[in-house]
Design a protein around this nucleic acid. Structure first.
Lengths: 224, 224
DNA sequence: AAGTCAACGATTTTCGAAAATCCTCCAATT
DNA sequence: AATTGGAGGATTTTCGAAAATCGTTGACTT
């Protein structure tokens, strides 16, 4: 997440992106075993770069490794959703608080720009309303990153980034619930307004609430 | 840190331990390049397991990777020490608070046992007073892990564990300062007492203070 | 004298196959 | 009937060498 830019520099990087995408999109499901033979066929390369890709994915919690039994897709659970949500509220809440306190004009610009880009396109796809638009997801991620980008703590940013990726898998489950009783767009705008108004505590509280609502909307998937 | 137990299951695991130890003990210094040829000689194995070990170490922040330029030992800096300290105060402080609130009798037992083991042996070596005893380091780690073990959040525990390992590299720099104006033993006992007395806020505050003092004692190394 | 570029050496990265390990299944024994 | 033991197959893990890449050196041009 920090040292590589795009696909093409190394095959291991390509494999990382390919497998990550397969997990994100649900092409391989939680709990599925990831056989090297299949992955080599999917990525079109030998075992070595695939192995390195899986090592990175495991570090980020997308896959798990059992010695001599190979890798498999990390499974999802209600317990983990709640756990990750709580940790995210703690870490990203504090990161936002610091960011609001320390942010300069440049940071304000990044937040406004990111929000504008995200608000300009709809969240759901037109052809399949139950699915999220890929580009909206990307801009949504950029917006949240922009909010905390001025916190001044690389380690906190790294943690938040990993937790965001991890929560992303759960978020994709909930798209069909979108439009029910929730105003996600409004929550995002309010988040931006509080940040720009330099209300550090208020913004942090709004962010925690935002994540709490997201988690609550997702809980239904595990009770059924 | 979560799926492998001891050295011997896989060569990659052995390599991970060996290289990690080389970094911890200072056999290879911050900023040093880690050539595969040297590492293969050190570990007595081929390139593949070494590569996997470096991937894991990089995920934990011990090493860094430049595409096509290979791996090198992550460098230390005052800025990172301060950053990690702050993030540790946030995450481990909250973890301890939760642990004190949720901990049961079993947790109390773990804390008392871990503290007893740590307090039973001196911190510094007898032959080289400026060096830390390897076994004390291990028990110290177990004690801190025991304190937060009842927090109920796997993700938080994972974060705390990684931050602890990362801070460990800095801690080793400060051994020669031990015994100056600090009562580390007293701080640890107080920490345990507050935890067992179920003073969640007090214990969390004491832990943050504990880490703050450790960082302060280390700052001198970077100003000289 | 400064700058450009190609070839070389050092090193990483990748490959394809061999070795090691685990799981399954079936027969033999208790 | 249940358990042990081990052969067979599938898969991971590791190896040693080949391919790709980067940094540098040194000749050549301007």
């Amino acid at each position: 997440m920090e040292q590589k830019k795009a696909g093409g520099r190394t095959l291991a990087g390509d494999a990382y992106e390919a497998i990550r995408q397969a997990i994100r999109t649900g092409a391989v499901k939680p709990g599925d075993r990831l056989r090297f033979a299949d992955l080599q066929a999917l990525c079109g390369m030998s075992v070595t770069p695939v192995r390195e890709a899986l090592a990175r994915l495991t570090a980020e919690g997308f896959t798990v490794l059992d010695d001599h039994r190979g890798y498999s897709v990390a499974s999802l659970s209600l317990a983990e959703l709640r756990d990750i949500t709580a940790t995210r509220q703690l870490c990203e809440g504090e990161a936002l608080r610091l960011s609001v306190l320390r942010g300069d004009a440049d940071w304000e610009g990044r937040v406004i720009a990111a929000h504008h880009l995200m608000a300009r396109i709809p969240q759901a796809r037109e052809d399949i309303p139950s699915a999220m638009r890929e580009d909206w997801e990307a801009r949504h991620s950029v917006f949240h990153a922009a909010l905390i980008s001025a916190c001044g703590s690389p380690s906190l940013l790294e943690i938040c980034g990993k937790l965001f990726s991890r929560a992303d898998r759960y978020r994709r489950l909930s798209v069909s619930l979108v439009g029910a009783t929730r105003d996600v767009t409004g929550e995002h705008r309010r988040l931006m307004e509080l940040a720009l108004a330099r209300d550090a505590e208020g913004a942090a509280a709004a962010l925690r609430d935002h994540y709490g609502r997201t988690a609550a909307a997702l809980e239904g998937f595990f009770t059924t």
